[in-house]
Design a protein around this nucleic acid. Structure first.
Lengths: 313, 313
DNA sequence: ACTTGGGTTGCGCATATGAGCAAGTCGACC
DNA sequence: GGTCGACTTGCTCATATGCGCAACCCAAGT
């Protein structure tokens, strides 16, 4: 498009979008044919002179979603635009996850959930009656030692409660110190039953943690900052259901993993529906590991994360 | 529009504008009728969920232009959006003025121009051959005492030169100390001829100054800062062709005005085409005085100025 | 001068869209 | 329970728009 046409395209765009003229009228007004007006309009859009933006807290980025789904073979992706105010990202992503769950068909019979700040936010945004008769089962341990005890339980209970379903909690620490203790607790009926139910859930909903000192697993005393530093040295980028993975999605420390209670990563990987919710720049690395290694079938995240995922060849 | 419809409207807008689906397809996709999709789209636009913006240095605000024309009975108005980077305003307005001049029909036989930074910028942006055979005549004095002598002359010469026309300069100070001197110089053939030609110009192009110490008239030594302060005390908001006016567009100091060489305000007011170019917040007051008192038939300015003009009832 | 070929222009035609209307829905009030 | 009225819905029909094609323009090469 040469300079004259560009200017003309601007005029056409103004008349069309700001003044609601028809292309016919514009043609008459600018002394060009109706078809030329139409063509200039297309050029204006293509050249980015006309910028159309959807401004809404629940807006999504369907283009990114499609590219992510294709690239990583996801069943679905939900990407929300990163808002101007930085701290609104996680709340928007949580809202999107809640919306996604609500619209999820078929409605899961049993939903397996993890816990954490992200999941909390999602639970909080689920409307009462978001579904009917969905049972919720925790898929990883950590109830008791959690800093605000009961939060993990509340998350699961809220999700179940608002869908009028039962909640099944996993009464176990996230990580045990000795492998024998872990085997013992897994063998206990109250735990074994929950794990069995978790394994048969029709869908999973979980988030992930970053591998650094600020991890909730450190906070809760399951690991020391030193432990995490060591894991990072071995390549850990973050944890999924308490299990630390490297950039390829592999378990970093099999010994540690053996002492972690809850659904295994292989079970997650073979699930029909695993909804992974993640927000924020700090989690880009874990997110990449999870998405690339097929740990989820559905990704719910923000635009910046999506772009980060798509950037690597 | 209730909450559900709003969300739906967002989805429709995304599919329509981001994904280029037809309303038919969207209806099928979202399980609503094609008409509902169309209606939601209209609602989304009305509610401001869809924001359409024309991003271009030469973009204009036709809505504002129309309102200004109506409100102040202008023959024309050209308003450019205020860009993000603050210092680009004057350059955009100057560009718009140049564009306007270029497109002006009928092409003026003779164009009367003032001088100053704004006019300079306009002249600079006129393309070579912007018109053919347009003579340019200066309509107010001030050539000699100007700080960069010759700038005023250059402005006029550039405008004429690029249109392949003659330039006629006004060889006189802007303001004289004694009324007798002013009468004498006006009587001089070289000046009288120019003033006569100025009075018969088919169009005028001018800007305005702010009434404060930074005025170019102070800079050039025609007035002292003290003089201007006194004028402000009497109600002056700025100057047009070196003549200070108050908020109503009336001459503030008739004695001073008598000593000012150039086209009179009444002549300007009765002109068929008086194009007033003004940019920046500092000039809102003068701009208001000029536009409201009918000193111009065409206004070329920025969005912020336009809004300031329209704000007062 | 003639040809060739890329790019532009105007147009016919199928499709997409918006306005206006009649029928249907639902809640409020009698 | 019945009736009214505001609001929504699906529709018809006129209009606006985009696609593909043929004619055309013009510049570069033969």
């Amino acid at each position: 498009m040469d300079r004259d046409d560009e200017l003309l395209a601007v005029r056409v765009a103004e008349l069309y979008y700001d003044e609601d003229k028809t292309q016919d009228e514009i043609g008459a007004l600018l002394g060009i044919s109706r078809w030329k007006a139409g063509r200039l309009l297309t050029q204006a859009r293509d050249a980015g002179i006309v910028r159309i933006e959807i401004v809404h807290p629940r807006a999504r980025r369907l283009g990114l979603e499609r590219r992510l789904s294709e690239r990583f073979g996801l069943a679905d992706a939900v990407i929300v635009p990163t808002p101007d105010v930085d701290d609104a990202v996680s709340s928007r992503v949580a809202q999107a996850a809640a919306d996604y769950l609500t619209a999820l068909r078929p409605v899961p019979r049993t939903l397996g959930v993890s816990w954490g700040r992200t999941l909390d936010a999602v639970a909080d945004r689920l409307p009462v009656g978001w579904a009917t008769g969905v049972d919720v089962v925790q898929i990883n341990g950590g109830v008791s030692l959690n800093r605000r005890p009961g939060t993990a339980a509340t998350t699961a209970a809220t999700i179940a409660g608002r869908a009028g379903g039962q909640v099944v909690l996993l009464p176990s620490p996230a990580i045990l110190e000795r492998i024998e203790t872990k085997r013992a607790i897994e063998a206990d009926r109250t735990v074994a039953d929950v794990l069995a139910k978790a394994a048969t859930a029709s869908a999973y909903l979980y988030s992930a943690g970053v591998a650094d000192g600020s991890s909730v697993l450190v906070d809760s005393g399951y690991l020391t900052a030193e432990d995490v530093a060591e894991l990072v040295r071995k390549g850990a980028v973050g944890d999924v259901l308490g299990r630390y993975i490297d950039a390829n999605g592999h378990i970093v420390d099999p010994g540690l993993d053996e002492r972690t209670v809850g659904l295994g990563l292989d079970e997650l990987r073979s699930a029909a529906a695993a909804i992974f919710v993640v927000a924020g720049a700090s989690k880009h690395d874990v997110a990449r590991a999870i998405v690339m290694s097929g740990l989820c079938t559905v990704l719910v995240s923000d635009e910046a994360t999506a772009n980060a995922l798509l950037e690597d060849a």
